[in-house]
Simulated assay, not measured.
Amino acid sequence: MRERPSARLLVLDPHDRLLLFKFVHLAGALTGTQFWATPGGGVHPGESYEAAACREMFEETGICIDDPGPQIAQRLVTFTMVDGEEVSSDERYFLVRVARADLSSMHWTELERAAIAGQHWWRQAELAETADTVYPEDIIDILTRARVW
């Protein structure tokens, strides 16, 4: 199984709302699945988790950052990619605070354009009440332990 290190972003606006993207898979191995997840993605060979977090932040939100902030969580998980490949991922979660909530999808890949159906800034109570699937599953606990919520 291929190892896929990943930098994930816990992006908070000035009102402590958390940015999540809604993924809806209409084709490929994940057809019919939908869930909410943090921005972020795979670390390129030779790239640090921090550098990947900055790159992913720009690519997925249009916001340029020089520092991803502190790493506040790590998760080891196995999952299926859109093409059906099973990967083992070492996910590192960085806390990023932004001054504005407006985003750009200008730098999204074709895969992101095909799978990301929406975005939402979630309040803690709203996230706690949703019946939707959210990854990581313990995202509220992560932010509570970090004393964000």
Rank of each mutant, 00 (worst) to 15 (best):
R8S: 11
R8A: 09
L9M: 02
L9V: 04
L10T: 07
V11L: 04
L12E: 05
L18I: 00
H25Q: 11
A27N: 14
A29L: 10
L30P: 07
G32T: 09
Q34W: 11
F35D: 09
A37K: 15
G40T: 07
G40V: 00
G41S: 03
Y49M: 04
Y49P: 03
E50V: 02
A52V: 01
E56Y: 02
M57K: 01
M57F: 08
M57T: 05
E60V: 00
E60T: 03
I63F: 03
I63R: 01
P68A: 03
G69M: 05
P70I: 06
L76V: 12
V77M: 12
F79V: 04
T80A: 13
G84Q: 09
G84T: 05
V87H: 08
V87A: 07
S88F: 15
S88H: 15
S88G: 13
S89R: 02
E91W: 08
R92V: 08
V96W: 04
V96D: 05
R97M: 04
V98S: 02
S105M: 03
S105L: 04
M106I: 11
H107C: 06
W108T: 00
R113S: 08
R113K: 12
A114Y: 06
A115H: 13
A115E: 15
A117I: 09
G118L: 07
H120A: 07
H120F: 12
R123E: 06
A125E: 13
E126K: 00
L127C: 11
D132Q: 05
Y135F: 10
Y135Q: 10
